[in-house]
């Protein structure tokens, strides 16, 4: 139903370029697109199939795309073996899930409240603050890695679980996107609510948040990617094995090139890579349409 009406609208819009639906003239595009799709997909096929390959297939020459004798041994190894310092893998996984969930929730609240104030409130420093945020958007993370390290050390956050969450909440892109979105909510709507006696908190929660869902979805994905895939925080700020994350563990697995467990290590790395990938994929599929609409809506026009 939905796709039909969409196609119809496209056919109207594209009337000059292409007829609606499939047409033999489109074959040329498929011929060009097919190799591109292959190029995009091949490494991802490897990530999926490698996770199920037994060692002899993993090291086969030449590398095989698809697994012939799938095995769950890599996953079994991953969860039964202990890392160098006797921390079970499930612990890393648990840390990652906790950190990611808490960061996502907190960053949604922190950036949306700030964006609401920046967009709909009048106060003196408004423009300055927004400019500061825009400049922060352009900074190179590595340029502030050292002082950030010193500040985090001085705050006593080294080896604390909070260090996974707090820096991830400073997301200039998120604030920026959300402000653009909230700007497009008419002031009349908010004033009408005010006249009806709604408090700021009610306006924020009942009116603003529901109207900027696509931007929230996008920020959820951005925060997810920033925390779920983050190995640096564990490497830099955490010295206690039990507080490190799964992404960090994966990075140690794939860098282990010496030692007796090279073969098992590669299989485990492949399994761990798949575990890393699947939540990314699921979240993206769930939020896809929202993210796409953010892209066409957001600051990209300007």
């Amino acid at each position: 139903m939905r796709s039909r009406s969409r196609r119809k609208s496209y056919s109207l819009r594209n009337s000059g370029i292409n007829p609606s639906g499939f047409h033999p003239s489109q074959i040329q595009f498929y011929i060009i697109l097919a190799p591109v799709v292959a190029f995009m997909l091949v490494p991802i096929i490897f990530i999926v199939s490698n996770a199920f390959k037994p060692p002899e297939e993993l090291f086969a020459y030449p590398p095989r795309f698809f697994v012939v004798n799938p095995t769950g041994k890599n996953f079994a190894d991953l969860f039964t073996l202990f890392s160098a310092s006797d921390v079970p893998v499930s612990r890393y996984l648990f840390n990652s899930i906790m950190v990611t969930v808490v960061s996502m929730a907190a960053s949604l609240i922190v950036s949306s409240t700030a964006a609401f104030a920046l967009s709909k409130k009048r106060f003196k420093l408004k423009q300055t603050l927004f400019a500061v945020n825009t400049v922060a958007l352009m900074f190179v993370p590595v340029a502030v890695a050292i002082p950030r390290f010193l500040i985090i050390a001085r705050l006593g956050l080294i080896n604390s679980a909070l260090v996974h969450v707090l820096p991830a909440l400073a997301m200039p892109v998120g604030l920026f996107l959300l402000k653009q979105f909230i700007d497009s909510i008419p002031n009349d709507v908010i004033e009408a609510a005010q006249i009806d006696g709604a408090s700021d908190l009610q306006i924020y929660w009942r009116i603003v948040l529901p109207m900027v869902k696509p931007a929230l979805a996008t920020i959820a994905i951005l925060t997810f990617q920033a925390t779920w895939n983050n190995a640096d925080t564990s490497a830099m700020y955490i010295n206690v094995e039990g507080l490190k994350t799964f992404a960090f563990y994966l990075s140690t697995l794939s860098s282990t090139t010496t030692g007796a467990n090279l073969v098992a290590g590669q299989g485990m790395a492949a399994a761990a890579a798949l575990i890393m990938f699947v939540p990314n994929l699921l979240l993206f599929i769930i939020l896809q349409s929202q993210v796409m609409s953010t892209m066409s809506h957001s600051g990209l026009k300007g």
Partner: peptide, 25 residues
């Protein structure tokens, strides 16, 4: 209105300044 605005902004500002702006200086 301004004081409410700063209340809404506070968490974001504290974090932005601690982890992004302060490190630059």
């Amino acid at each position: 209105e301004a004081s409410q605005a700063y209340l809404f902004l506070a968490p974001a500002l504290v974090i932005l300044f601690t982890f992004n702006i302060l490190p630059i200086g």
